[in-house]
Amino acid sequence: MLTADESYTGISGHDQPGKLRRLLRFVTASWRLNLAGAMEFRFSFLLTVGTMIVNNIVWIIFWGMYFKRFPVLNGWTLQDVMMMWAAASGGFGIMSVFFGNATRLANLIATGQLDVYLAQPKPVLLNVLISRMSVSAIGDLLFALFIFIGFGDVSPVGIVKFAAALLISSMIFIFFCVIAGCLSFWLGNTEGLSFQLFNALLVFATYPTAIFKGFGRLVLFTVIPAGFISSMPVSLIREIDMPFLYGAVGMAAGLCAGGILLFYRGLRRYTSGNMMGLRR
C-alpha cells in the first residue's frame, strides 16, 4: 500500500499566490465555453438573437407612437423611456448572458443539479451562475447598446452614468433572481413562483416609474425593486438625484449580500434531489 503524502505530487497551483488572476481565468474560460456552445447552432443563434431585438423594437414603436400623441407623461419624455428600456434590457441582458443560471436557480436546487458545482473547488454560487448563457439575451444586450447610442448622451460623463446604471440594474436583476430561486431550499420546487417574481421585476422595470402612485409605488421600491431600475433615466442619467442613488446602490448591495447569505444558508439544507426519491 502506498503512503499518500510521500508519493503524491499534486499538479494544482491553487496554493500559489495569484488567486484572483486564476479565478478570473476560470470565469472567462467558463464564458468562452458558453459562447462556443451557443455557436454550435449558428443559425438558431442568429435567429434567437434577432427575435429578441424585434421583440424589444415593438415596445420602442409603441412608445414612439404614444409620445407622438401625448408628448409628456408625468414629466417623462420619449428619451427617458428609451433610456429606461436601455437600463432594463441591458441589466437583464448582462444577467442572462454572463450569469445565465440566475433565473434557473429554483429548478437547479429542487432537482439536485448543484452536485457538480459542489464537487468543484470554486465558489458555488459564482460557478453555478456563470455556467449558462442565454443566447437570446445577447439580443437584449445589443439592443440596450443600440438604444444608448441612438438616444443617449454619448459623452464621457454620459457613458460613465450609463455604465453605472447598467451595473446597478444588473446587480438588482441577478441577486433578486438568486433570492427568488433560493426559496426552493425551504419550500421545495418553487420554479413557477420564482419565475413569476422575476417576471414581475422585468415587466415593472420597463414602464415609467412616474405612472405608479401610492401602494403600487411603494411595492416598486421595496418588495419588487423595479423602481430602482426604471427611475434611472430621470434620477441618474438626466441629473443625479443623490438620495435615489444611495437608495439604488443600497438596494443592489443589500440584495447582493442577502442573496449570497441566503444561498449559503440554503446549501446546508440542500438535498441533492433526494427528497423526491424518498417520497412515499
Binding site: 401625448f70 409628456v72 407623461l73 408625468n74 415587466v203 415593472f204 414602464y207 412616474a210 405612472i211 405608479f212 402612485k213 403600487g216
Partner: peptide
C-alpha cells in the same frame, strides 16, 4: 400597469 398608464395619460 396599463391602468396606471392610462390614468396618468387621462389626467395629463
Amino acid at each position: 400597469i396599463f391602468m396606471q398608464l392610462w390614468q396618468s395619460t387621462f389626467a395629463g
